[in-house]
Simulated assay, not measured.
Amino acid sequence: MKKLQNSLYLTKDKLYVHKEREAIVIKQDKETLLKIPIHSISNIFCFGQCTVSPALMAHCAKHNVNLAYFDLFGRYQARIQGRQSGNVLLRRAQYRRSDNDPIDIARVMVAAKIQNYRSLLQRQIRNNGENEPVQLVIKTLKFSIEQVKNSKSVDSIRGFEGDAAAQYFSVFQHLVKVSLQSTFVFTGRNKRPPKDPINAMLSLLYSVIGQDISGALQAVGLDPQIGFLHADRPGRDSLAQDVIEEFRAYLGDRLVLSLINRQQIKITDFETESSGAVRLKDDARKTLFSALQQRKQEVIIHPFLQEKVEIGLLPHIQAMLLARHLRSDLEYYPPFLSR
């Protein structure tokens, strides 16, 4: 089993990051802020203006360390990628399946996404008591899962997925504590750019988690750009966007709600650009990424493997299971289902 290593989130402006023997050194205005062992890091995420030395880039490429760049809103910009790993026969199987028979994999991924939406809403009912709008959506999503299971085309699966997401986000405001709903107002999902604090947090987390998944797919020898649900598009990691559907509610949405409801992040932690785009301030981004890193350290029982695993390893496990299915070692792809 892959060992869970740390992710390094660089959120300060005008940082210079370089390799010094077996350490990563982070400087700002020639002052050393941090020095950490290089072999303890599996991901480096750079936000805003951040310069990485060529030597560190080369190390990341050689040792499969995921080095990704984002703007301050969390929009993905670029990634340093080394040589493609894995057997070319696996990628050939992936391409054939994507072209000729994607529906079974697309179906289980979307069904899992909707079930994980239901699980989050059911968790809300258990913790906070009955809520009629939320309970109605829970019932509606159960019907959506049946529609997906009976779908005969990828286009119809996409349609049911879109409808289910709209239903789910229609009650997302109810998941925020009543005392905070007047400040954290959520009227629906918006992005590119996000126009409110909740959407700003969701977009940022989805972007980072998506890069985790891209790196995991690359590590097992799959091509992150060739998916089964999302259409091919230049510059988009469509397979990573497929797999992230299973994790949006479990890794992204739950963390956003937890930080808001516990008031670890407050409405004053955001700023609005002249364009209307909303983003987190520097200290709030640190809080968000620290909470994500702590979440990755938590241990659960994997629903398919029935083994204890750290949450941060879930993208790697799902990538491995997908590769095994494409090699015909598994009859079907077992998606991640939360409890």
Rank of each mutant, 00 (worst) to 15 (best):
C50F: 02
A111V: 01
R279W: 04
D104H: 13
A164D: 09
G312K: 00
K3M: 11
Y332I: 05
R285P: 13
V154A: 11
T272A: 14
A55Q: 07
Q28N: 15
L90W: 01
D269E: 12
Q167T: 00
F70Q: 05
L33K: 10
E20S: 14
L337C: 10
N128I: 04
I36P: 09
L34Q: 14
T140A: 13
S153R: 08
S258I: 04
E298R: 11
A78L: 07
G227H: 12
N150D: 12
I36S: 08
I260L: 12
I26W: 13
D212E: 13
Q135K: 03
L288A: 06
Y76E: 10
L56D: 06
F169M: 03
R285V: 13
Y76W: 14
R279H: 05
K35L: 10
Q263S: 14
R189Y: 11
F289D: 02
T140G: 08
Q225E: 15
R189P: 08
G82V: 05
R254D: 07
N100Y: 13
P315V: 00
A112D: 09
M109W: 07
G221S: 14
S144Y: 06
K142R: 08
K191C: 08
A112H: 08
I24K: 08
L251Y: 07
I260H: 02
D242F: 11
R123E: 12
L72C: 10
R233H: 15
F172E: 00
D232I: 09
H63L: 00
T187S: 15
V25R: 03
Q115W: 00
Y117F: 15
P193Y: 13
R339W: 07
V299N: 03
R233C: 15
D163K: 10
K14Q: 12
H174T: 04
A112E: 00
L33T: 01
L326W: 09
F247S: 07
Q167C: 06
P234H: 12
H302I: 01
D104Q: 10
V17R: 05
Q173T: 05
I36V: 13
F184G: 01
A240K: 03
D29W: 11
L229P: 00
I260C: 08
L280G: 04
G74M: 05
S7H: 07
S179G: 06
G129N: 05
G188F: 12
R324A: 14
F228E: 00
S214C: 15
G188H: 09
G159N: 15
A323T: 04
V243S: 08
L202C: 11
M201L: 12
L326R: 04
I26L: 12
R21L: 15
M201E: 07
V137G: 05
F169T: 03
L204C: 15
T32W: 06
Q218V: 00
E20K: 14
G82A: 04
C50N: 07
S258F: 10
Y168H: 01
Q211D: 12
H59L: 04
G235S: 14
L321R: 02
A111I: 02
P335H: 03
S119T: 03
A166V: 00
R339H: 11
Q84E: 12
K12R: 13
G86E: 05
L314K: 02
N199H: 06
T187N: 15
E298N: 11
L330F: 00
E132C: 00
I103S: 07
K14H: 12
L72D: 08
F228K: 05
